[in-house]
């Protein structure tokens, strides 16, 4: 279908606007890419990529069996892992309800010279899986479940990125 030359010109204009805006943003985000992450994974902290003596965030999974509660009932110590490296976190305060071992977490605070994260904020990062408690139980305990065929086990992986 032949287009009016004027309209054809405008069509090219429209494409030029969209493409140049995309290119500009692409370059911008390429330049900023490291600053757009909300947190550092433990492996980058261990490699020394995260600044020391400055407030940063670390994110990963709470390592199973690593949560130690202190006698004061508020201070808690746990290990955040991305299954490549571990960072120990110490935090005094109220933990979010969804905080649990083997679940995602984002902590904010400062690294001390021992490499321990002195956190002042702990946020729970939940995953995209939703299921009723009975289904979750049957996944943990397939023998107890009375359902003949339990659904496929959702992979428990670290999906930060």
């Amino acid at each position: 279908m032949a287009m009016h030359p004027k309209r054809k010109q405008r069509l090219w204009m429209v494409l030029a606007i969209v493409l140049s805006a995309t290119a500009a943003c692409g370059l911008l985000f390429y330049a900023l890419s490291d600053n757009l992450n909300l947190f550092y994974p433990p492996s980058e902290i261990v490699q020394g990529k995260a600044p020391v003596g400055q407030r940063i965030r670390a994110g990963g999974m709470v390592k199973a069996g690593s949560v130690i509660r202190q006698a004061d009932g508020l201070t808690v110590e746990f290990i955040v892992t991305d299954y490549e490296a571990d960072v120990t976190v110490r935090y005094t305060g109220i933990l979010p309800d969804l905080f649990a071992e083997n679940d995602g977490v984002v902590v904010a605070g400062m690294l001390d010279e021992m490499g321990v994260m002195q956190a002042d904020e702990v946020l729970a990062k939940h995953d995209e899986n939703y299921m009723p408690p009975e289904v979750a139980d049957s996944l943990k305990n397939p023998m107890k479940a009375n359902k003949a065929a339990p659904p496929a086990v959702p992979a428990k992986t670290w999906q930060g990125k």
């Binding site: 992450n37 909300l38 550092y40 995602g104 995953d127 995209e128 899986n129 939703y130 930060g160």
Partner: peptide
């Protein structure tokens, strides 16, 4: 990027994580 928001639950190409 690393974000606090979780990934997509509804997926067009795979089974939904719900």
């Amino acid at each position: 990027w690393f974000a606090l928001h979780q990934g997509a639950t509804l997926k067009l190409t795979e089974k939904s994580a719900m």
